[in-house]
Design a protein around this nucleic acid. Structure first.
Lengths: 211, 211
DNA sequence: AAACTAATAATACGACCGTTCGTATAGTTT
DNA sequence: AAACTATACGAACGGTCGTATTATTAGTTT
């Protein structure tokens, strides 16, 4: 056994990390099915069998890839928002972080979850179920932030409805940015929609974060 | 050569139609890559080589599948709206038709174009380009309907911005309906968002189609 | 240094992929 | 009836897929 660091084997864990880092990038462009073990091993210049041994099955690799993507997503989108105190400001920061996450291509294929959720949306099985739970987490978080802002008296709007709409703007901007050349135009249009929607939802007289 | 009917060969054309009808359904669930020639031939109980001969390449099959899906889409969504006279009513009908098209699963995997646009959004090539052009058509149509309503004095809003937002509600409802159990809830929430947005955009005093 | 174990590699397998080829059939044209 | 063409078929190709088995390397422990 290797020297342990926090309960994980060093050598194997490093390989695993390297594999997953590459895997999320590939999957964000070509999907979790397009993510083939042979291709992944080829790009990393390791053996297919050695890579396979880390996961035991393709499905396990896919699930591990989603977990890895989720971690990156949390770092890029959720954490920056949680650093802001609850209320209108946090809600706005959350959406702003998301748009930034998509726009600056944290994953080369745009939002990882938009991609693979569409890939597995109409199927069944563990991968689908996992993606459903991540989606629930995400929408729940927006909703919770909206509810906090409402509790603070900064917002008058149904949190569920508002969360649906803000998330819709994000998703739609992400796809449009993949299909159009003028990426910046797409995102500034989305930001405009977000601002307008939040202004309409804000309690009259409340100070708006972008003002 | 077979007896001709309107310039098309009868026997071969029937097969082609049957293939494409099945192809769009498969692709809406498993994508245009998941759409394999062997599987398609198997389900239709015809030979793989015979099917292949109709298209000459996988990519041609994919393009033909998109064309077929576009026809179905136009019939289900665009035509019903064009039957309404230009203005606020047509714009509303267009969006309503779309939500209905997704909700009643004209394609078993939800919106065909949402699915395959995400599949090919981050790639390049003829399939990507075709999907881009279809997306442009669609958003252009919403925008045009909004512009007509504005010209008729029924609406005060930037058509581009409004089109982006309405389309976002549609796309987002489609995905959410694939990931959640409560499909009807999802769509009634989307309809609520559409109505509210259109009310805000309407010229004061205008009669609203759903009232 | 020997024993042990975790990590990686080599090799092979059957299944399916898109594609090609040669051939048979069926319907049309002359 | 003969020539021709569209359509479909079965078999096979090289390649890649996910997976299993077996061997080899590297690192730790004793």
């Amino acid at each position: 056994m290797q020297t342990r660091t926090d309960g994980r084997l060093v050598r194997g864990d490093q390989t695993r990390r390297a594999v997953l880092r590459r895997a999320v990038d590939i999957a964000s462009v070509d999907g979790l099915e397009g993510l083939s073990i042979g291709r992944l091993a080829g790009e990393l210049e390791i053996s297919k069998s050695g890579l396979f041994a880390h996961f035991g099955s393709k499905e396990e690799l896919q699930l591990a890839t989603i977990r890895a993507a989720r971690r990156i997503y949390v770092d890029a989108v959720v954490e920056p928002a949680l650093a802001v105190e609850p209320g209108f400001g946090r809600l706005w920061r959350l959406i702003e972080s998301w748009l930034d996450y998509s726009q600056r291509r944290v994953f080369p294929g745009g939002c990882f979850f938009a991609k693979v959720s569409h890939e597995f949306g109409a199927r069944s099985g563990p991968v689908h179920d996992f993606l459903v739970s991540v989606d629930r987490e995400w929408l729940g978080l927006i909703e919770q932030c909206a509810a906090e802002a409402r509790a603070a008296g900064e917002l008058t709007a149904d949190p569920t409805q508002l969360a649906f709409e803000l998330n819709a703007f994000c998703e739609s901007a992400n796809l449009a940015s993949l299909l159009r050349d003028e990426i910046d135009t797409v995102f500034s249009r989305a930001r405009q929609s977000v601002r307008t929607r939040l202004e309409a939802a804000a309690t009259p007289g409340a100070t708006l974060p972008w003002a």
